[in-house]
Design a binder for these strands. Structure first.
Length: 481
DNA sequence: ATGTGC
């Protein structure tokens, strides 16, 4: 059945609900966090049908949720949050995504944009030279099978211990760059092989390394705590677990498709395949997912080292780049949330959604603790990005989650038809944004026109109260696959 | 997203 406005109730400004009564399979209502114009845009693709499907997941609690940057994905929409009861509720690889622990980190310099304007083109080229990018691309590091197991169990700590990272970065990463439940033996040899030369590589698609400057500060206190100020040059890194995470997802989706029947699980779409978290298949996947997440954190740490190398090559020694924060936006976590008025442990699936815990969260570095978790929102290439801070309200509305980006508006194919990439590249150069990319195809697919307006997305999360605006970033140099 | 596809 086609979902229309008639099926959607407005709960409050920026919060919409498709009630449980919409379909018999639904176990909880389906909720959309969006302004009305964004809701209209969301209704253009199959996001809401997928959101409704997710509401039938075994053990789902509260509501099936999507953020304002949602678009359709494999089974689950990208920009979705689903919490299932721990430990017997479902775990579903589709609710995490093929790129396990795809995420973003922000590094901050102590340079002002006007001091490096003349270096930007050179900087873009040097970053492109230092950071392997593109589909299937490997890097310099070849991991032995012993080192691979250490990466999978220790995450970013491996990079630090092996000269590709900085000890002081670890405290500034979600989960300190390491999920303790990882078990390398649950990751297939094929996945390990695919990942063995991919540490320190960004891949393709929407992944990038980008130099930005802070264009505007919205909250002085939080910006100061996060170490951000107007005019400051910063570096944004967006990538995940590459072929390794993709293979883990592929392996376990295949296993769950056949295992599902053993647990009498029926889902409205095969792509929602899942098993009970506490089943053997569920535990195996969770341990493998944690391992792939650790690979991704290590990858972003190694890329930071490459960025620091490029920085030194252009600006000389001793120009520090500090890690502001690193967030995952494709991951499942065991967390405590309020469910039907009671605190309960739940398995929170975030697929294209960022954890956004508010002030007081224990894991945060002391200097951030009074202000909530940094939430990093990359916009599309050549527009702008945001730094937000999580709030207490995110726990009430979205299981402590927020949006993760602008959200795709056009399919890759549609974007390629509409965009003349060489012209776009020149236009952006005229605006002072230098792009270095492996292919014009990649530039076309990632053109700003292919994305929603990130300002509208960020306005929604701000108005709904799940995050505060801290700073707006403007790109000046971009490396893409 | 991904050695683009059973």
């Amino acid at each position: 059945m086609k979902i229309t406005k008639a099926h959607i109730n407005k709960l409050e400004d920026y919060l919409w609900e498709i009630p449980k009564s919409f379909k018999p399979q639904m176990r909880v209502p389906a909720r959309v966090l969006a302004s009305e114009p964004l809701l209209d845009a969301i209704m253009e693709d199959r996001s809401l049908a997928q959101l409704v499907n997710v509401a039938s997941l075994p053990g789902i609690v509260g509501a099936s949720l999507v953020m304002p940057d949602v678009h359709e994905g494999y089974g689950f929409p990208i920009g979705g949050v689903a919490a299932t009861s721990y430990p017997e509720g479902a775990i579903s690889p589709g609710g995490i995504g093929y790129d396990i622990n795809c995420g973003v980190r922000l590094m901050v310099s102590d340079q002002k944009i006007h001091t490096i304007r003349d270096n930007l083109e050179e900087l873009a080229k040097e970053l492109y030279a230092q950071i392997p990018s593109g589909m299937g691309k490997g890097g310099q590091i070849r991991l032995s099978s012993k080192d691979m197991d250490t990466v999978l169990s220790k995450g970013a700590q491996w990079a630090v211990a092996n000269g590709y990272g900085a000890e002081e970065d670890l405290a500034f990463m979600e989960s300190k760059g390491r999920l303790p439940n990882a078990d390398p033996s649950m990751v297939s040899d094929m996945a390990k092989k695919r990942g063995s030369n991919q540490l320190g590589t960004i891949g393709s698609g929407n992944h990038f390394v980008e130099v930005d400057y802070v264009e505007e500060i919205y909250d002085d206190d939080i910006a100061e705590a996060f170490g951000l100020y107007e005019g400051q040059v910063v570096v944004l890194i967006h990538t995940g677990s590459r072929g390794l995470g993709h293979q883990v997802a592929t392996d376990y989706i295949r296993k769950m498709m056949s295992a599902m029947a053993n647990y009498n699980i029926e889902v409205p779409d095969r792509e929602l395949c899942c098993v009970p978290f506490n089943s053997s298949e569920g535990q195996d996947y969770f341990k493998a997912m944690c391992a792939a997440a650790n690979f991704a954190w290590c990858n972003r740490e190694v890329i930071s080292w490459e960025v620091r190398t490029a920085w030194q090559n252009i600006f000389g020694p001793d120009i520090p780049l500090k890690l502001m924060y690193d967030v995952a936006h494709n991951i499942a976590k065991i967390e405590t949330h309020k469910v039907n008025g009671q605190e309960a442990e739940v398995i929170v699936h975030r697929k294209g959604a960022t954890r956004a815990f508010g002030p007081g969260f224990e894991e945060l570095p002391l200097i951030y603790k009074d202000h909530g978790q940094p939430v990093i929102i990359p916009g599309s290439m050549g527009t702008c990005s945001y730094v937000l801070a999580g709030t207490a309200k995110s726990r009430e509305l979205t299981f402590g989650s927020c949006c993760h980006g602008a959200g795709r508006r056009l399919s890759r194919t549609a974007a390629k038809k509409q965009v003349n990439a060489p012209v776009l590249k020149e236009r952006l150069k005229d605006e002072g944004i230098f792009i270095e990319a492996g292919s014009f195809k990649g530039i076309a697919e990632e053109a700003p026109i292919a994305y929603k307006d990130v300002n509208m997305v960020v306005d929604t999360v701000r108005e709904s109260g799940i995050a505060k605006r801290v700073a707006k970033l403007r790109p000046v140099a971009v490396v893409k696959g």
